[in-house]
């Protein structure tokens, strides 16, 4: 087992544990902090497999934007947490768990499909990562600004809409006076 693989396992463990924490933590604030840990660790995974640009983007967007928003959400809404303490809903719990179990079965089926795939020769196993990453970034840039120019522009428009929409929705309605 290489050092790389070891590092991956450690980060993966952190992700899983932090994710469980985000879901089951009693205090919503703790959950938000666990989510931040997950976002960071996922950025680490991207770095480990050589997608440095994505790793940077992950840190910028999730830590810089989403995490901030989540904390804001907690601050603005959840000064008092759920009465009764448990984050898990009581009603229909078994139905939910059953569904989740079935979904896991579905995931296993997908995995089976995935594990049968053969990794092609052009994969990172056959190329030095550092040397290759620069060209990878160039490809990414070319792809994004040539082939995906229209989606890129559309998504920028979407962001603008979200900006305005969020302001409109969250705005405190002024009194008629």
């Amino acid at each position: 087992m290489s050092l790389e693989q070891l590092l991956f396992l450690v980060v993966a463990a952190v992700i899983v544990l932090a994710a469980l924490g985000a879901v089951f933590a009693r205090r919503i604030m703790h959950a938000a902090l666990c989510a931040v840990v997950v976002f960071t660790a996922v950025g680490g995974i991207y770095a480990i497999i050589g997608s440095y640009f994505i790793a940077v983007a992950q840190v910028l967007i999730y830590i810089g934007a989403v995490a901030t928003v989540l904390v804001f959400a907690v601050m603005l809404s959840g000064q008092k947490d759920i009465a009764g303490g448990s984050p898990i809903r009581r009603q229909a719990r078994w139905k939910t768990v059953l569904t989740w179990a079935a979904f896991v079965v579905g995931l296993v089926m997908v995995f089976q499909f995935t594990l049968n795939l053969t990794v092609p020769a052009s994969g990172p196993a056959n190329a030095p990562m550092a040397a290759e990453s620069a060209t990878s970034l160039r490809f990414l840039g070319q792809l994004l600004f040539y082939d995906y120019l229209l989606p890129f522009e559309v998504i920028s428009l979407l962001l603008l809409l979200v900006l305005i929409g969020a302001v409109v929705i969250a705005r405190k309605e002024s009194d008629p006076q």
Binding site: A92, K95, T99, A102, F103, G106, V110
Partner: peptide
């Protein structure tokens, strides 16, 4: 919303199953 989500999950499951 949770119920809607549940329905969505089942829909995905059925899709996967069908595909399978």
């Amino acid at each position: 919303i949770a119920n809607y989500l549940l329905s969505l999950v089942w829909a995905v499951l059925i899709s996967i199953l069908t595909f399978k």
